[in-house]
Amino acid sequence: MRKIVAIIFLTIVGLYMLSLFAQIPFGKPYKGVSEHYVEKGIEENRGSNLVTSIVVNYRGFDTLGEVTVLFLAATGLSFLLFSCKCLREFKRIRSSLVLRTATDTLFPLILVFGAYIFIHGHLTPGGGFQGGSVIASGVMLLFLAYRKFHVNHKALSTLESLAGISFAGIGLLGLLYAKSFLANSVLPLGQWNKLFSAGVIPLIYIAVGFKVGAELSGLIADMISTTKED
């Protein structure tokens, strides 16, 4: 009964969506605001990666909101799991030698790679979100390999708050010295395809990288830890 109702519902939704999406021109050249972003992107921001320019500069306010959503979700998760005393019987098993050795070798390299990704976010593919998640997957490896591994929650939340404050602070500097919030005319723009270029974009993306990395590491730690004591 439930399946039949679901399939009928899906058919109706599917037909409706098909008739809607049939009007979208797939694979055709685009117009409108994307054209402006592509054409004037280098001239206005000097960052080679146009996706970074859009995420951090043209739609920077949007990104600030999304980072806030991430923070709220992590806070809600730790609030839900904070007083859960009923899962004491859950034990982490000892990992194999191969996993521990590989973690010891790979973890510093993963950290360096993540930092490289978010420092070069305006030049190559990558940026704060990617670099942060790569760093968080390194922390995840540590959790898998060592049974007694703990993160320092206080340090993580301090790092996270500092990164968030610096994001908002750079935006307010734009309000103070230029005409709008998060405006990209506080620092000199520099040359195209150089590391020190693109104004405040690399600074904001480094802050986002620290924030996302700390946030996701804390999230994994909250999920994997069993009780407050051990």
Partner: peptide, 17 residues
């Protein structure tokens, strides 16, 4: 078009949270 990529980039990170 870079605009959809910029939108999806943040959507994935929000999705995991």
């Amino acid at each position: 078009d870079p605009l959809p990529q910029a939108l999806v980039l943040t959507a994935i990170v929000i999705g995991v949270a």
